[in-house]
Write a protein that binds this DNA or RNA. Structure first.
Length: 684
RNA sequence: GGGCCGGUAGCUCAGUCGGUUAGAGCAGGGGACUCAUAAUCCCUUGGUCGCGGGUUCGAGUCCUGCCCGGCCUACCA
């Protein structure tokens, strides 16, 4: 099994984790079922972006990627993502395999040479990928557009068509240069690929439709697989001065990482990548479908390696129903999450949302809190914690008592749960498991162990009740083990019987000792969620500065450390001068949002009730619906225009304005006073 | 414009091959309990299954038209 290789140019964030957790669960499930499975991954280390970043930071690419790899591995470990091998595409094994693939492609007659004209940055001495060029859109004249298309009018063009193009890195005016590139003639594999994508359920059905409708319905284009120097990567042996494009060597990294594992444990790579007995499962996001379902099978076929058994494709992560946003603090890095919250929460939450399809999944923090607290702590862990105290002094009964069929029922549910895991329908698996948990707690309730505990004569009964409850708990822990390895380990410790195999869910445990109960999982503290979001905002403010200096802006960056864009001011020039008296006419006040609600018929408006302290309330309709949810506003302080003439709007009378910056739509940033300000205070 | 996916309770979703009175969890309301991390248990409110047409003895489910939302595309990969 593989998860996509994270690029060595940035930290792991919650969006990445959807995939690594999804894959980790699947691998752990396969291992629990008794299969020999390995999870390999690696850092994706090559490309122009890495080269440029290393240059800016004044160190070698090798130092940079080693540093990033340490961070990535630390973050993955923090989320209990357990790779059998975590390598790097810059490893010697990968170079050797790249040569094998290359030789095979040459021998198959799939490589051709063609001239490519590209923009070239004379100062940096490098060719510029489309996204490294910015300029004015040739169609609508919007400034500051990337080299491939305009996000204002949607026009697509070549980077050379931009008006006043400039290099994003140096600000230099690029020139057009021509270089020889090597291409793979993928079209020669067209028939094979058309067949492969359709057979044996290698891909989800909607992906097959997509590929057939978008790519396989016409000749496949040649794939530009080389980049001229300077480039950070592997130089192509029979084309000196040219390097394999990062997307050529990245997937080969899956095999290279496997090879490293093989060397370490004394296995043969042939048995894993050239054997009909081995299945290869790739887990990827929907953004890299093309590479994994067309190029990659084509390369594997040509070089004689195993084709993927299945490519499992997932959607993206949204937070609170919107794209992850740095300014809102919903762009949460793995490292920051771990400073505040338990990784088990996220593993379970993602599992409860992940289905077999490509839909995006949403992280909603209220739901997150509710699911973890009520499902995991309230239902599952509680089962153990409410009985373990009684049980630890007497151990489990030597025979499994009559439980009214509960254990058997849950044991029989194992097949359906396993099938759901197998199909990557973890949401279904979690539902099935929670149904079992819902049956277990009423048993304890009805058996009343706390009553039995008061009567020494009923000790046997008490022990039986605890034996049932703890066995039902253990069964749940086995079923949840792929998702919650930590809980499984603690369950194993409690009953002095490590959870290692799915079959352990089928037989009750009897006659063993019960260790003193220790907390297995604490409830989610919503304050920690808030703190995590706040810290994410701060981090990104710092980071944004660094990034802009290194990449986005031009030469003036050297003198202006903040390097803010002049665009907002250009868009909305200063208003005519006003006097202090003019200003004093506007009465700005600190106010607290005490209520906020959607206005169902309104597209843009939220209805806010502001408190100016004491009994003074104002109703304000604010055009911020796209940027804020009512719930996140309640309680916060804002600055409002308190003496604005009331205005009758379609949905009621608005008695003021809330101040905010931004262009409108989702780009709205409410002003907040620093802490200490009190509702009703005037802003001078 | 084209493609894909979706629209079921306040929220998140399940609903198998078309088959009885459409379900769960959470949230809300009422009660019980005290072993447990304010956990748990019982009862309960809540639905025009997006809208219209069609097929059928019977439609949340199949067909069709439309509306809404998301993603992907628009001759880039």
């Amino acid at each position: 099994m593989t998860a996509a290789l994270p690029y060595a140019n940035g930290p792991i964030h919650l969006g990445h984790l959807v995939e690594y957790i999804q894959t980790d669960i699947w691998v752990r499930f396969q291992k629990l079922r008794g299969h020999q499975a390995i999870y390999v991954c690696a850092d994706d280390t090559h490309g122009t972006a890495i080269m440029l970043r290393a240059r800016k930071e004044g160190r070698s690419e090798e130092e940079l990627i080693a540093d990033m790899q340490r961070q990535h591995q630390r973050d993955f470990a923090g989320f209990q993502i357990e790779f059998d091998n975590y390598g790097s595409t810059h490893a010697p094994e990968n170079y050797e395999l790249c040569q094998q693939f290359w030789t095979a492609l040459r021998q198959a007659g799939l490589i051709v040479e063609k001239d490519v004209s590209q923009l070239y940055d004379p100062e940096a001495g490098t060719f510029l990928a489309d996204r490294f060029v910015k300029g004015t859109c040739p169609r609508c004249k919007s400034p500051d557009q990337y080299g491939d298309n305009c996000d204002k009018c949607g026009a697509t063009y070549a980077p050379a068509d931009l008006i006043e193009p400039r290099s994003v890195m140096t600000g230099a005016t690029p020139e057009i240069r021509t270089a020889r590139h090597l291409f793979v003639q993928l079209e020669k594999l067209h028939d094979f690929l058309s067949q492969w994508v359709q057979e044996d359920e290698h891909l989800q059905p909607e992906v097959v439709n997509y590929l057939l409708g978008h790519f396989l319905n016409e000749p496949l284009r040649d794939w530009d697989i080389s980049r001229p120097a300077p480039y950070f990567g592997f130089e192509i042996p029979d084309a000196p001065g040219n390097y394999w494009y990062v997307w050529f060597d990245a997937p080969i990294g899956y095999i290279a990482s496997t090879w490293q594992w093989c060397k370490r444990v004394g296995e043969s790579l042939e048995c894993w990548w050239r054997s009909p007995d081995t299945e290869v499962h790739h887990f990827i996001g929907k953004d890299i479908i093309y590479f994994h379902t067309l190029f990659w099978p084509g390369m594997l076929k040509t070089a004689g390696f195993n084709l993927p058994t299945k490519v499992h494709i997932h959607g993206f992560l949204t937070v609170g129903g919107a794209k992850m946003s740095k300014s809102k603090g919903t762009f949460v890095r793995a490292e920051i999450y771990l400073r505040h919250l338990d990784p088990s929460y996220l593993r379970y939450y993602f599992a409860s949302k992940l289905g077999p399809r490509l839909d995006d999944i949403d992280l909603n923090f209220e739901e997150f809190e509710a699911k973890v607290n009520s499902d995991l702590v309230g239902k599952v862990v509680n089962l153990a914690s409410r009985c373990a105290k009684f049980a630890s002094r007497m151990g489990l009964s030597s025979r499994y008592p009559d439980d009214g069929g509960l254990f058997d029922h849950a044991a029989r549910a194992g097949d359906a749960i396993a099938a759901a895991y197998e199909q990557c329908d973890y949401a279904r698996a979690m539902r099935l498991i929670m149904e079992l948990a819902d049956r277990a707690n009423p048993f304890v309730e009805q058996a009343q162990p706390w009553v039995l505990a008061k009567d020494p004569a009923r000790e046997e009964e008490l022990r039986d009740v605890c034996t049932v409850a703890l066995n039902l708990f253990r069964q749940l822990a086995v079923y949840l083990a792929p998702v919650l390895p930590d809980l499984a380990r603690k369950a194993g410790d409690l009953l002095a019987d490590p959870i290692e195999h799915w079959q352990q869910s089928q037989q009750p445990l009897v006659g063993t000792e019960v260790q003193p109960f220790q907390h297995m999982l604490t409830r989610v503290n919503p304050k920690e969620i808030q703190a995590m979001i706040e810290e994410s905002k701060e981090q990104d403010a710092e980071q944004a500065v660094g990034e802009h200096v290194s990449q986005e802006q031009n030469a003036s960056a050297d003198t202006d450390p903040w390097n803010d864009s002049d665009e907002p001011l250009k868009k909305e020039p200063l208003a005519p001068e006003c006097t202090i008296d003019d200003f004093m006419k506007v009465d700005l006040r600190v106010a607290r949002v005490v209520a906020a609600e959607e206005v169902p018929e309104a597209r843009k408006l939220l209805k806010l009730t502001l408190s100016l302290g004491g009994e003074v309330r104002k109703t304000v309709f604010a055009g911020i619906k796209a940027a804020y949810k009512p719930d996140e506003l309640v309680g916060r302080l804002v600055v409002c225009v308190a003496n604005l003439a009331p205005r009758k709007m379609r949905f009621g009378v608005s008695e003021g304005m809330v101040t905010a910056a931004g262009e409108g739509g989702e780009e709205v940033y409410l002003l907040s006073p620093d802490s200490g300000a009190k509702p009703g205070q005037r802003v001078h």
